[in-house]
Design a protein around this nucleic acid. Structure first.
Lengths: 254, 254
DNA sequence: GTGGGGAAAACGTCAGACGTTTAGCGTCCC
DNA sequence: GGGACGCTAAACGTCTGACGTTTTCCCCAC
């Protein structure tokens, strides 16, 4: 624990000093990154904007190209910019991408789940809160196209092999979250599902149980298709509770 | 497109080739970052581990120090590692930090809110879904210490000035989310609140309205203190609906 | 004992060079 | 005249080596 401030040989009270967050001096690459991020978030650099090349960018900030590059690495790892090579390449401000956000949140959650602070049961509780409500909303708002997507997701064959095809399939729960028309719900729910799925990898669940799951999905899909919001919500709640039982029995969560 | 397999002297159709997502070649700094991330997430490098210094790390991966550094910048901007200077400095695997995650999610949301895909009304709907349930859970689980924290947050003077003090105060809604004992709920709800707060910056809301808000907070706090889960939930729902009205009237959301 | 002054280990930054990728354009051969 | 081939230039990607800066630790003088 080297971060301890020197409480050395003081005689009397060690002087409270409150919060001596000295802020040191932020490294140059961080300052450059922060400045650029601020400009991007403020809208001064709209999506698609091409930044100056690395050498010029460095000159503009009074730093070397390497430093400018490190700043760009930071921004690009946060998906604020992306770089392309070749003539006509360069660094461009990214279009905001919900899928990317879901990914990031999911991986951040993945880290937290390893700690005692965030238990898998917390995720299940959150899911139990979120998805029934999502089912209700989906039932209330379903347009025909969305209904069809949900039905398709519920009917999709359970092929865990062949992970490449099935671009549009995703998962029933994902599809349902999206069917609410509220992106925020997807953003909150999807990472939870992702984490749970990776945790459940190869738990010994038998085909008979999967059939039951599929049946639930189809039932919920029908409720939604018919606009029976209350039934959809309740069915989803039961489904999640059932899933939770499965997780708690077979889930290998350390 | 040099990755094209030599479809050379084929006479007929140009060969569909399906999905030739050649993935190009990921840059070295990305490969290094991905490899390290994988090891960290797999638990092979537990929090607190000190990585080799940049030069050695580069040697270990067969890349130069600059490349290794760029990889570390990526990881550190994702809060997977942090670097310190000086002897005994170096790069260390970070302890997972929920507050950091909340920050990240919040800023990611901030970006998305600028798009038409994610509207502020979506945030409000999500909040209306989340916080009443949180109030219910808090009422069900409240231990005396938590109750006290919630009460304190509700009673806290509304000092928008003096942003430095009040380290423990935060916000009533934040405190309540934490009072559920389910970190996941905080993780989902807090970024929403953050985004809403920044959007509402300096909306012309009068003192009388703030008094009303505070009254609601105190009422909810009391419901929770007394363990009246249903009342807490309902009061919170009313409160959020009321807040939504305020936002919709005064909120300056583009 | 205590305080101060190196010394050493790491990161931070710089400068310059060369490789690699990519798009665009011109040329050459049907 | 048209299309394939190959060259070229702009940017990023990577390497090398050097020097500055920060921070800790330890020894030595007082």
């Amino acid at each position: 624990m080297p971060a301890q401030p020197p409480t050395s040989g003081t005689t009397g009270a060690p002087a409270p000093v409150a919060h001596l967050r000295v802020q040191r001096v932020r490294p140059a690459y961080r300052q450059v990154a922060d400045e650029l991020r601020t400009q991007i978030l403020a809208g001064a650099l709209p999506a698609g904007t091409r930044l100056p090349n690395e050498a010029e960018l460095g000159r503009a900030f009074g730093v070397s190209r390497s430093t400018a590059r490190e700043a760009l690495r930071v921004l690009s790892s946060q998906h604020l910019v992306e770089t392309h090579r070749g003539v006509q390449g360069g660094t461009f401000v990214s279009e905001p991408d919900p899928a990317r956000v879901v990914e990031d949140v999911g991986s951040a959650l993945g880290v937290l789940v390893m700690t005692p602070r965030l238990h898998v049961s917390d995720l299940l509780e959150a899911r139990l809160l979120l998805e029934p409500a999502a089912a209700r909303l989906a039932a209330q708002r379903a347009d025909t196209e969305t209904v069809e997507a949900v039905r398709a997701a519920a009917a999709a064959p359970r092929d865990d092999r062949d992970p490449s095809g099935f671009v549009g399939h995703l998962d029933f729960h994902t599809t349902l979250l999206m069917a609410t028309g509220n992106l925020m719900l997807t953003l909150m729910g999807q990472p939870v599902n992702d984490v749970l799925r990776t945790r459940l990898r190869r738990a010994g669940i038998e085909a008979r149980e999967w059939d039951k799951v599929d049946a639930c999905h189809r039932e919920i899909a029908e409720h939604i298709a018919e606009g029976r919001a209350g039934d959809a919500e309740e069915a989803m709640r039961d489904h999640i509770v059932e899933l939770r039982r499965l997780y708690e029995r077979d889930g290998i969560w350390a």
